[in-house]
Computed example of a mutant assay.
Amino acid sequence: MSASAIASSMSLDLAPPPPRLSPADSLFLDFDGTLVDLADNPEGVHVDSVLADRLDALAAHMPGRIAIVSGRSIAQLDALFGPQAQHFTVAGSHGAERRSPEDGHVQPDKPDHLATATEEMRRVAEANDLYFETKSFGAGLHYRRNPDAEPLALREATAIAERHGLTLQPGKMMVEIRLPGDKGQAIETLMQTPAMRGTVPIFFGDDVTDEDGFVAAAALGGAGVLVGPMRETAALYRLPDVAAVHQWLARALENAE
């Protein structure tokens, strides 16, 4: 994002996105902080039937053109959505793995050092009252219940990532280490699938981890939608919170062409 774009985005608020979807659009949605409110730990989140049914309806209306792009693993998202997760495309683990009707489940091999790094993260969590999250291709330290531990969590995770050649990914009240990949690359890859090719991507996300996705969407002629308070962002639109995203999805489904 250019310096002028940042300056513009910080000098005034962003408008909400128009509540409509056309056959020329593909919809990409982050999960935590976008479709569901953040919880003290990842296991405290659940998907209610209203949200699941609404995404199901969107998937039926725009087949192959709706995707969840999340830092969670595909296995975690499957557990949260149940069988309905099979009805839309999913990019998990920050794009390290993906599942689409055309390609099935595509994922990298797990290097041996990932298990070692994961165990080191677990020991840091146990020693410092942090919530440890194991993922398919990484591990996270959550300090929402112990905010004073943020410098320690960042320092320890940075050292582990550097020691094992992994990607360091800070997030909201957490930090994780993982295999390489980002949400921008995930969107670019999914936009090459037959259903999405030639369409315009719209990506909703809340965290700094979603900025790569905003940049990728804009580069492909689409737009990012920031969810939450205004900040420096490559998004072109903004919604204030998760509830507003749900309202937008409902109206977009009503207005869908």
Rank of each mutant, 00 (worst) to 15 (best):
P17H: 12
A159N: 04
D241V: 04
K183S: 04
A153Q: 12
D148Q: 15
D56Q: 08
H94G: 02
T116V: 11
R20F: 06
R72W: 07
R178N: 01
F137E: 03
T116S: 10
H113Q: 14
I177L: 12
V36H: 01
R20T: 15
K183L: 06
V45A: 11
G140Q: 02
E188I: 00
D32E: 07
F137M: 10
A234K: 03
T34N: 07
R145K: 15
H142C: 13
P201H: 10
F203R: 15
D112M: 03
E232D: 09
N146M: 03
T89P: 00
F81S: 14
K183D: 14
P151C: 11
F204G: 03
M10W: 08
T189G: 00
M62T: 02
H46L: 11
M191N: 06
D32H: 09
L21H: 01
D53T: 08
G140I: 04
D129M: 06
V227K: 10
Y131M: 04
V124W: 06
V208Y: 13
Q247P: 00
L38P: 03
I6T: 14
R155S: 14
A125P: 08
L27Q: 02
V45N: 06
N41E: 12
P240E: 01
R72G: 00
L29I: 05
T158I: 02
G64P: 00
E102I: 02
P23V: 11
I6V: 14
L29T: 12
T167Y: 06
S11P: 04
S2K: 10
A125S: 13
G82N: 10
V47D: 05
D56H: 01
V36I: 05
P16C: 02
H46A: 14
I202E: 01
E211P: 11
A5H: 14
A234E: 06
D30H: 07
A217R: 12
D37K: 13
E188P: 00
A218D: 15
E102L: 09
A15Q: 08
Q192S: 09
R155K: 09
G104N: 04
M1D: 03
E43S: 13
P240H: 04
K110F: 00
D48N: 15
D241M: 03
H61S: 09
N146R: 10
M173Q: 11
D40K: 05
S136W: 06
A67F: 02
D207C: 13
P201V: 05
D40M: 09
L179Y: 04
R98A: 12
G95T: 07
